[in-house]
């Protein structure tokens, strides 16, 4: 079995995996980081979004072996000890979730949007950028509000995901 060496949330791991192992399977089943979810398993819903070397990817559509040598950040890597990441805090504050299934992917995508587009995001931009994340509870209204507020809060000195990576 080949070995994949990967840094996840700042911690290095060397794991033996079958070649067909997906990145999300490595995270959930080998490293027991079950915050990353599998929704559709067809790269449409975005519940499995994590950051690989700073870029949002759908971890159900990437082989674990392809992450060899990479640095991965999952939803578990955002909070700073007991204090939530500003984007997580914004989702709580603005009620950006109901059942919570899509939330880890939503938040990882949201942080990626801020990393690429800055902290001043208009509603249209947020809605377009969340095209690859599907929520079946909220109707998106509060998610969009949360992303906008979280983006502003990240600028205000909140720990950015880039720093975590």
């Amino acid at each position: 079995m080949p070995t994949v060496t990967v840094t996840v949330n700042g911690k290095s791991h060397a794991v033996d995996v079958a070649p067909e192992t997906l990145l999300v399977e490595l995270l959930r089943e080998k490293l027991r980081l079950t915050g990353t979810h599998v929704g559709c398993d067809t790269s449409q819903c975005g519940a499995c979004v994590v950051h690989v070397d700073g870029a949002a990817v759908k971890s159900c559509t990437m082989l674990a072996m392809s992450a060899d040598g990479a640095s991965v950040t999952t939803i578990e890597g955002l909070a700073n000890g007991g204090s939530l990441h500003p984007m997580q805090e914004a989702f709580r504050e603005h009620h950006g979730l109901q059942c919570g299934f899509c939330t880890p992917g939503m938040i990882m995508s949201a942080v990626d949007i801020v990393n690429r587009k800055g902290s001043e995001l208009d509603e249209q931009t947020i809605r377009e950028e969340l095209e690859g994340n599907i929520c079946r509870c909220t109707g998106y209204h509060n998610i969009v509000k949360a992303v906008g507020a979280g983006a502003k809060a990240m600028k205000g000195g909140g720990k950015s995901a880039r720093a975590a990576e």
Binding site: K58, S109, G132
Partner: peptide, 9 residues
């Protein structure tokens, strides 16, 4: 093409 995460790969 696709969405941001797809375009990243």
């Amino acid at each position: 093409i696709g969405d941001p995460a797809v375009r990243n790969r």
